[in-house]
Simulated scan of single mutants.
Amino acid sequence: MGKLLQVAIDGPASAGKSTVAKLVAHKLNYIYCDTGAMYRAVTWAAIHDGIQLDDDESIEMILSNINIKFVPSTEGQRVFVNETEVTTEIRMPEISNNVSTVAAQVSVRKYLTDLQQKIARTGGIVMDGRDIGTTVLPSADVKIFMVASVKERALRRYKENIEKGIQTPLEILEREIEERDRKDSTRTISPLVKAVDAVQLDTTSLTIEQVVDKIMKIIEKKA
């Protein structure tokens, strides 16, 4: 494959974006950028500092002192905020249930969008999130919008939580995902929406391997 492409993968919570994006990046030998982990890291920092999560001015004040770093490891990507590893903490329910509020703040979106655009500038990247194809990389070479039913996404989150030792009833997870969808789709800044030139993939009844295969075929056609 000649030109180094920008691949944008968007979609709602627990649609399988991160898992698929990592595998696609590996197949292409591209960089993988987990933008969701960036928003979770800022959310962790705000909670850690006791900041009101919808107070844009207060959150903006801490952004200049936050250094988000990804470190590859045999167990997967490790995430650090300054020198503190937050890999496990940012996947806890407290973060999952508050990240949409933090992500809706103007200062946070500007700060992270600028950072993500710098990372993707030279191409050779697979980036997943909510607004990659619409705001972060509007000129991306390939845009995918992954969707799945709420029930399926809640079941996926339930299985992930069980593996982590987190016991949350499936019905509660369904309500939480519906609420995240509402927040992400109705926020004023960069709402969750399918880019007009994105290819939509419904992953409800597909395996991870099938989704990756479909995306690779889309990329190969583009290349």
Score class of each variant (00 low, 15 high):
G129I: 13
A37M: 05
I144E: 01
E220L: 10
E60H: 12
I119L: 15
S205R: 06
A46K: 04
Y32A: 05
T35Y: 13
I66T: 06
T113L: 07
V150R: 00
N82A: 08
E163F: 01
W44A: 09
E178D: 08
E152H: 01
L63T: 11
F70Q: 01
C33G: 02
V147T: 15
P12N: 05
Q117S: 13
K217I: 15
I172D: 12
E178V: 12
M61T: 11
S96F: 03
P169A: 09
K27H: 14
G76A: 07
E85A: 10
I132G: 07
E176G: 03
I59T: 06
L53E: 03
T188V: 15
Q210K: 14
A15I: 05
G165Q: 08
R130Y: 12
N97Y: 15
A45S: 14
L5C: 05
S139K: 06
T186M: 10
S107F: 09
Y158Q: 04
D10R: 01
D197P: 15
E83M: 07
P12L: 09
M127G: 07
E178T: 13
A104D: 04
E176A: 13
L201C: 02
D202L: 05
A45F: 12
G165P: 03
R130P: 09
D128Y: 13
T207M: 07
E89M: 15
G133T: 10
A223C: 05
A8E: 08
I66V: 14
M61I: 13
Q167E: 15
Q6K: 14
V211E: 00
C33L: 15
I51Y: 13
I189K: 10
R153W: 09
D10W: 09
R182H: 11
V142R: 02
V106R: 02
D202G: 02
R180C: 10
E179R: 06
E89Y: 05
Q210H: 09
I47V: 15
I162C: 07
R153A: 09
D55L: 06
K118T: 11
E178A: 11
S73G: 11
T74L: 13
Y32P: 05
A140D: 10
D54Q: 11
Y39K: 00
A154H: 06
I218S: 01
L53T: 11
A41Y: 11
E83F: 14
M38E: 06
Y158T: 00
I68V: 12
A8Y: 06
